[in-house]
Each structure stands twice: as structure tokens, then as C-alpha cells.
Simulated assay, not measured.
Amino acid sequence: MEDILRPIYQERASQSNTLGVLSIEKKQKSFSSTDSFDAILLIIVREADKPLFIKHYSYSDKKAAMHIITEEQLREWILLGSNRKIFEWINDSKILFDRNEFVAHLKTELREFPFYGRKIKMGVEFAKLIRRYVDGKALFENHQYLDAYNHVVHSLHHLARLAVIENGFHSELTVWHQVKQIEPEIFKLYEELVNSEETLEKRLELLFLASEFLIHSRTHLGAAHLLDILEGKEYWSFDQIMNEKEVTPYSVDLEVLIEYLIDKHLIEVVKAETKGQGIFHRYYKVREKLL
């Protein structure tokens, strides 16, 4: 495979913009890791007109895909976990070209998973968890059990990923395999949800009770990144929080997370008068810790 594709990646490797070239071959029993292709060429560049460019090739009776990705896009995928295959690709890849050991350092970084990177990822995962949990509970209370079930399944996935990250690992495609070993209590909840012979209503009712405890026990850890940022100023408008660069990954889940943290007495609301009688601006600050 490498010999056949060499002319393609050698041309890219000769360009000063290219940071690394990796090859990933299909595992014998796993089509999903390479999206059914026999080989993936992953080319990392400093910058490009598009953050991701993909081209497909055929050779003999096989097929290959070339992915050209900017460093910024790669970092975003790693931070947000929005392309979970990337972890497997980087870990299992063969390095064909590595400028100034960029790829070697990246592999080390992923393996060691620095605490600060974990803190941001836990915050983002916790925000997604709260969104799914709150929306699912509202649907449950309105007797929309099938829709509530969908949200609960997603909330358990986020809870599982949060537990994996908390333990210093990247949450991969096989997150339930990871969780079964790291946090069997969460794995058991998932099993009970999908395998129990109880009615759907009863399963959801029991799960919300159990989830509430597991979420509550992780609130300080999951909210630590956001609270650290908010402690940088006396108080914030929501727009200021939303446009803070480090908060951008929270996206549409930010509002529901802040309301949850208000409910848990970790954030408090500060009211400021407006020109309209009886209406106030709403600001947010980290609640002072009681001694």
C-alpha cells in the first residue's frame, strides 16, 4: 500500500506547509475505523483554504482516502471529541513524514492527556450531559416517554465519557468498553435502561433518580473550567460569557449549564436596573464559597 501511495504523499511532504503524513490501514475485522477504506492517508498542514479536504483513490481492487486537515481543525476535533476516529487514527498510524517531530509530540500529548486539556473536555461533556438530562426530564414529566428515552441514552453516553476523561483517558469509539472497566456503576445503569423488563416509564423514573446522584457528585469537577473563567471578573453578562474564547466550545449548551449551576448555588444572579420600571439586566457571578 505504502509503495503505491508514495507519489501522492511525497508531493505533500515536500511542501513546507505540511507538518506530518500518517497512514492508517484497515484492521482485519474493523471496517468502521477507516470508513470501509483499505487505507487512509492523514496529512496535517499548518493552514489551508479549507480546514478539511478529502480525496478518494482506487488501486488494484482496493480503495484509499486522503484527508488533508489543518492543525487548527485537528486541535478542535481533539478538544471537542467531535471526530472520535481521530484518536484511533493518530494512535494506530504509521508515521510516513514528521516535520520537527510534530506528530511524535502529538502522540505523546494524546497519551499523557495534560490536566488542562482534560478540564476543558470535562466542562464541555458536562454541559452536554446537563442539556440532555434537563430536556429528557422535561419530556418525561410530560409523558413523552420515547423522546425522553432518547435523551436519557445520550445523557448516559455523556456521563460515561465524562467518567473516562475524569480518569485520565480519552473517550474513544468503544466508550462502553472503557466504562465497564473504569466506572461499572454507570455501565450497570446503561444495561438496566436497555435490558430491564420494567415498563419504559418505570425504567426512566429509576434512571433519573440514579443519574441525579451521579451528576450531582460530578458537578464541581464538571463545572470547574467554566467557574475558573468566571472568577476572572466580578460579574458577567451572558453575551460576555458566550464570547469568551475559552467558552466557545460550550456552544448551545451554555445557557442550560449556567441555569443548572444557579440552581446548585454555584453561580448567583446579579440584577442591575434598566431604564424600564421593574425590569433588570441579569448578570452572573461565581457564588462566594462559605467558610
Rank of each mutant, 00 (worst) to 15 (best):
I86Y: 02
I258Q: 08
T199W: 05
D98C: 06
D38P: 05
V124M: 13
Y260A: 15
H177A: 10
T219W: 08
S237F: 01
I4E: 01
L261E: 11
K121S: 10
E88A: 11
L42W: 13
I95T: 06
Q178S: 05
I182M: 03
N17P: 00
L159Y: 09
S196Y: 04
I95D: 02
D92G: 02
D3T: 00
L291N: 15
R118A: 07
L266E: 15
Y9K: 07
V175C: 05
Q10S: 12
S33A: 07
A138T: 00
L207N: 15
Y145V: 03
S217Y: 00
L139N: 12
Q277W: 13
K188I: 04
L41S: 01
G123R: 09
G278C: 05
T34Y: 02
M122R: 11
V45P: 00
S237W: 01
L80N: 11
R6H: 04
Q181A: 14
Y284K: 02
G20S: 10
H225G: 03
S36E: 10
K180A: 09
A160F: 09
A13H: 07
F113L: 12
L146N: 09
K26G: 07
I90S: 11
P51L: 10
E191G: 02
I8N: 07
I182G: 02
M122W: 01
V134H: 12
E234H: 10
L173M: 05
T219P: 00
D35V: 06
S60C: 05
H67D: 09
H170E: 11
E109W: 08
E259T: 14
I258G: 03
L214R: 12
F115I: 04
Q10L: 12
F208L: 14
K245Q: 11
L226F: 08
E72L: 10
H158G: 00
L106V: 08
Y190W: 09
S32I: 13
F31A: 15
I69G: 03
Y284T: 04
W236L: 07
A272I: 09
L290G: 08
L162S: 02
M1L: 07
K289V: 02
K55G: 04
K50Q: 08
L226M: 04
I215Q: 06
M66I: 02
